[in-house]
Simulated scan of single mutants.
Amino acid sequence: MRRQPVTSSVIASVGYDAGTAVLEIEFTSGDVYRCFAVPPSVHRGLVDAASPGAYFNRTISDRYPTRQLYD
């Protein structure tokens, strides 16, 4: 999945597949996670957030099924 960089001290890049509703997040630590059944509005909110890390914690973390890809 192609990811785009975001300005954040915690999140390096974000990708989204609208066809499968999968959100992929690469953290600055190098960890990459896929979140499933994520609406397009949540992806847009993450990319547009003034603080993507805070948005992730408030809106995404522990709310969608997630799988770590690699670290």
Rank of each mutant, 00 (worst) to 15 (best):
A50Q: 08
T66K: 06
A12V: 01
A54F: 10
T28C: 11
A37P: 05
D17W: 11
G53T: 03
V22P: 06
A21H: 14
T59C: 09
R67P: 02
A37S: 14
G19N: 09
T59P: 02
V10T: 11
L23K: 09
Y16E: 00
A12M: 06
T20N: 08
S29T: 15
S41V: 06
E26K: 14
V38P: 01
P40D: 08
R2N: 11
A49I: 00
L46P: 00
Y55P: 02
S29P: 06
V14L: 05
C35L: 15
Q68R: 08
Y70Q: 03
C35P: 01
G15T: 05
A49E: 00
P5E: 14
T59H: 09
G45Q: 03
L46K: 02
H43Q: 04
A49Y: 03
S9W: 09
Y70P: 01
S51C: 11
Y64H: 10
S51N: 15
H43C: 04
N57Q: 14
A12K: 14
P39E: 09
S8T: 04
M1R: 12
A54H: 12
A49W: 03
L69E: 03
F36W: 05
R58L: 10
A12F: 02
V38M: 12
V22Y: 10
R2K: 11
D48Q: 12
L46T: 01
D17N: 15
A50W: 07
S13P: 03
S8V: 04
T7H: 11
N57M: 14
P65M: 13
Q4G: 09
A50H: 07
L69S: 02
C35S: 13
Y33P: 02
R44I: 01
I11W: 08
V32T: 06
Q4P: 01
L23H: 09
C35M: 13
Y64F: 15
V22F: 10
G45A: 03
T7G: 07
T7D: 10
S61Q: 14
R67G: 06
G30S: 05
V6M: 09
P39H: 06
D31T: 07
V42D: 09
G19K: 03
T66W: 07
I25R: 06
L69F: 02
G53Q: 01
F56N: 00
R63Y: 00
Y64G: 03
Q68I: 00
V32L: 07
T66R: 11
I25W: 05
F56Q: 00
F36S: 01
A18V: 15
P40N: 04
R3F: 11
G19E: 06
V22C: 10
R63D: 00
S41I: 04
V14N: 04
S41H: 05
S51E: 13
T28S: 11
R34D: 10
V38L: 13
S61T: 04
H43I: 02
F27D: 08
V22I: 14
P65D: 13
A54P: 03
R3Q: 12
R63K: 05
R67H: 11
D71S: 08
F27L: 10
G19Q: 06
S61D: 08
D31C: 08
V6R: 09
S13M: 10
A18Y: 11
